[in-house]
Design a protein around this nucleic acid. Structure first.
Lengths: 194, 194, 194, 194
DNA sequence: TCCTAAGCGAGACGGTACGTCTTGTCTTCCA
DNA sequence: TGGAAGACAAGACGTACCGTCTCGCTTAGGA
């Protein structure tokens, strides 16, 4: 019994075990990439028994997802303070700031040594945020709302990946500017407009 | 000996073996998803000996990549006939037509049962095409050319995935229209321009 | 990790696993000869996982040797009761009695479907016994003690093989008589002596 | 067609191929022991195609046996000149002389890196000789003639092995003396006789 | 002298066993 | 007596050989 991946506070020990595993995962992921990590690695890193690991999680994917779940919970909690300013996409700057700080982890999750699972989790987390932040207007012109969301998230990830992998020297503000330009105007050259 | 995954015409038998493996991979990938495929599956499906498989490819990733390499080679060969019409992104319609026909394979490669490797290969193939097709106009307001390319490819993949996974009923032309709208104008409403 | 082929009492489960493997080997060896046995056969016969097998033994030779080691340990333990009667070679009769009962195993180990390893182990086990039982008399006319031992063991094996392979109908006592005659007098005809 | 391992003079080229393989086997056997030799080793050493090897022999055992067959044929041919002196076992001295010269090959065939097949061939070859050389008398006393033969051969091999492996410094004459002593008188101490 | 069948080298191939590695379950022991 | 430790069954991995086979090349021996 003892519930699998629910995060509820069951026990003091259980909480300590989960913390150790999450931290171990972070350390390992930057050291050898997500895909190469084995359950054996995880339990050695966290100094935990094999059956203990499986008592808490169904596998390393579950551990990863549970980590993202915690992350999302935290994000939601601290989101209220962003008052509904009328500027569109105003969350993006915070995003790039944050990503810049955890560049190592991000790269290890999404690079070729990463995992589709991680990528999907990241996309899901971003989608939730964008979905909440993008409720303006309803012009549509045949573009379903979900397409807007996925387009925005996709562009964000494109910039993020290009930035951290190819031009890590850039400042978050510079990348954010490119992002906004692309999302709001696309690549249509400025000459046609104005 | 005899080069691994180069596709050169080495031997009549070798070519037949490789063909059998590539076709087997395609069949299997739609049947159970890329990730779940084992080398054993591949050699049974292609009716090939285990050591023969490893004589040609270093693993299932290598087989996958070699398949994409062949695909790219074919695409390059048949590309010349696209005369340099002045319309931008004119390749996109063909792309969506093609993708619609191979929806099963595409989904199996990129879904959660898919593989980062496949995704990267698809992205690489598209990038090559876009890079060739997008040479118009000079540098623009500090946006590096590669960002244009990645943005375009990313948006294409976003639309492709959303289409095949969520709205498989749409016609290629409809999805193509959305793609062009997003890439050329972003989500900024049309009212501001013109 | 938990010692390889030492036979020590490490764990109840480990002991059961080893027992199952030893018994499986005996069954298989009479069924298809030692050489033809594969590790796969052994683990199927013993209903054991592949990695479990390799956790205990380095290969089928190691399993064989460990079986002989156990056998020797048992023999040593039950040897004390043989009081030092003055009759030479008095162990031989027990040997032939024993061999007659395990004729199948013996043949399967030493025949052309057998193994040099098994033969060497048998020879080693017999040598130990003979070395202990043959301490009478002082050095003799330039014949090193070890030559005596090897000669005795060799002759025993010669008789054993000939008996079980060519004349399985004979009684142990008859073969033992031949053995003693040959070892003690050679083939020189008795007439010359006495 | 073209018979497998018969040695008949089929063709000049065939004979050259077989010679190359036999010589390669001898070189390899002293270099890495019989058991460790692979067909690949043999065909590389003899500079022969894989299919050519299998056109002549069914495997490395067949090659080995065919080598012994040739050896036996040669021995038989040169045996006639040994006139039937009345001395028993007079062939043994020549045996030990010969073995001393080919110590390397012998050790590589019979040691733990050797092969039961080789041992059986050696035993068979020696048995043929002993059977021919041991026709004297018919006292018997219940000892079948074949037991005499096997006893003699076994003792010869025991001495041979012990000599080459443990005391390679001894002269053939010394070992031969021990052999004759053991075969003719056994280990019965001299005191009882005379 | 030319032609043709054979012997041959080269090595791809289908198979099988190997020893290693990882997974998720199940048993034992200890606190 | 409930959870940690780790032995275990299962099975995929990549490697090494095996014996079969299909190729061309060469190389006599008979026409």
């Amino acid at each position: 019994m003892s519930g699998k991946s629910e995060g509820g506070t069951i026990d003091r020990r259980a909480a300590r075990t989960r913390k150790a595993l999450h931290e171990g995962l972070l350390r390992l992921v930057t050291r050898k990439g997500y895909e190469a990590i084995t359950v054996q690695d995880l339990i050695e890193e966290a100094d935990v028994g094999r059956s203990t690991f499986y008592a808490h999680y169904t596998g390393k994917e579950d551990l990863l997802r549970s980590g993202f779940a915690m992350l999302r919970a935290e994000l939601s909690a601290t989101e209220a303070d962003g008052q509904a300013g009328d500027e569109p996409l105003r969350f993006s700057r915070a995003m790039f700031d944050h990503a810049g700080r955890y560049a190592d982890v991000f790269r290890a999750m999404t690079g070729s040594r990463g995992s589709l699972v991680a990528l999907e989790e990241i996309r899901r987390a971003l989608s939730e945020i964008v979905r909440r932040e993008l409720p303006k207007g309803g012009k549509d012109e045949g573009l379903p709302r979900e397409v807007y969301v996925q387009f925005t998230v996709g562009t964000l990830l494109t910039l993020l990946t290009w930035w951290l992998e190819k031009k890590p020297g850039l400042k978050p503000a510079q990348v954010d500017a490119m992002f906004r330009r692309l999302v709001l105007q696309g690549i249509g050259d400025g000459a046609e407009r104005r």
